[in-house]
C-alpha cells in the first residue's frame, strides 16, 4: 500500500494559483524536502494536507485513505503532525501543557470521569505524562518544562513545537522551515534531531526548508517548486544542479 500520495493538488486564492497541479509521493521512512523561492506555495501545500484549506483540485491519500473532505482534526487522529512556519504555540500555557495537548489524540477518558478525576483519569494522565517526558528527554527541554511559553526565546519555541508534534506519536511529520530563525548551533541540533526522528523513531518526514546545507544533509529526496508548480524532483544533488531550479532562484537570463 502506498504510504502517502498527493495527486494533482491545486488551490487558487482569487486570481493567484498558489498551488497548481502538484503531485508527489512519500515512501515510508524517508525525509522528503520541498524547496522553492518565497511565495512558491510550500506552506500552502502543508495547509492543503492539513485540510486547513479545501483543495480546489486533486486529492491526498494517506495509508489507503483519502483525506480530502475530512475535518482537520481527523488528519491528526490518523497520524499526521505538523509544525508551523510562524510558530503557533499555546502561549499562555506551560511547555508541559503544550506537549500534553499533543497527546490529545491518545486520550481515553470520558467527560464525567474527568469531572470527577477518577482513578482511571489519574492513571491515563500518568501514562500521558510519561510519554511526554520521553519527548522532553529527547529534545532536552527539561529545563523549560514548567515555564510559560510566552517569553521563551525563539529557538526554544521552535523546539517546543517540534516536541508537541512528536508527542502525538505521528507516522508522518510535516516540518515547515524547521531551521528558520535558528543560529548555526541550533540548526545543527535540529539536523541531528531530524536524523534521529527518521532513523531512531522511524517517522517519515516531509519538510520545507531554505537552508540548502541542511537539506543536503538530511533529505533523501527533494522536490523543487516555483509559482505553485513542480519544476524538479530527485536527490538533493540532482535538484540543486537542475537548470530550472537555478533559474527559479536566480531569475531567468533575460531579466538578469
Amino acid at each position: 500500500m502506498r504510504f502517502f500520495g498527493a495527486e494533482n493538488l491545486g488551490i487558487a486564492f482569487g486570481g493567484v494559483r498558489a498551488v497548481d497541479g502538484v503531485s508527489f509521493e512519500l515512501r515510508r521512512g524517508e525525509v522528503y524536502t520541498i524547496i522553492g523561492p518565497n511565495g512558491a506555495g510550500k506552506t500552502t501545500i502543508f495547509n492543503l494536507i492539513g485540510l486547513i484549506y479545501p483543495a480546489t483540485t486533486g486529492r491526498i491519500l494517506f495509508q489507503g485513505r483519502e483525506l480530502t473532505g475530512m475535518k482537520p482534526h481527523r488528519v491528526a487522529e490518523l497520524g499526521i503532525a505538523r509544525t508551523f512556519q510562524n510558530i503557533e504555540l499555546f502561549e499562555h500555557a506551560t511547555v508541559l501543557q503544550n506537549l500534553l495537548i499533543g497527546r490529545h489524540r491518545h486520550r481515553c477518558t470520558a467527560l464525567w470521569q474527568e469531572l470527577a478525576f477518577t482513578p482511571a483519569v489519574r492513571r491515563a494522565e500518568r501514562a500521558q505524562r510519561e510519554a511526554v517526558e520521553r519527548v522532553i528527554d529527547f529534545l532536552e527541554l527539561a529545563h523549560y518544562r514548567d515555564s510559560l511559553v510566552a517569553g521563551l526565546p525563539y529557538g526554544v519555541r521552535k523546539v517546543i513545537e517540534l516536541g508537541r508534534a512528536l508527542a502525538t506519536e505521528p507516522q508522518l511529520l510535516l516540518l515547515d522551515e524547521p531551521s528558520s530563525g535558528l543560529n548555526p548551533e541550533e540548526t545543527n541540533d535540529m539536523a541531528f534531531w531530524i536524523e534521529d526522528i527518521q532513523k531512531g523513531l522511524g517517522i517519515t518526514v516531509l519538510m520545507v526548508e531554505h537552508d540548502m546545507s541542511l537539506v543536503q544533509r538530511v533529505s533523501d529526496r527533494v522536490l523543487a517548486l516555483n509559482e505553485g508548480r513542480v519544476i524538479a524532483e530527485g536527490t538533493p544533488a540532482e535538484v540543486q544542479s537542475h537548470p530550472a531550479v537555478i533559474e527559479a532562484y536566480l531569475g531567468s537570463k533575460e531579466e538578469a
Binding site: A81, R82, E88, L89, E91, G102, H104, R164
Partner: peptide, 13 residues
C-alpha cells in the same frame, strides 16, 4: 483559546 489552528492540527475537534 490560544490557537485554534494548532488545536485542530493536534486533533482537537
Amino acid at each position: 483559546r490560544d490557537s485554534e489552528i494548532s488545536a485542530a492540527c493536534m486533533g482537537v475537534n
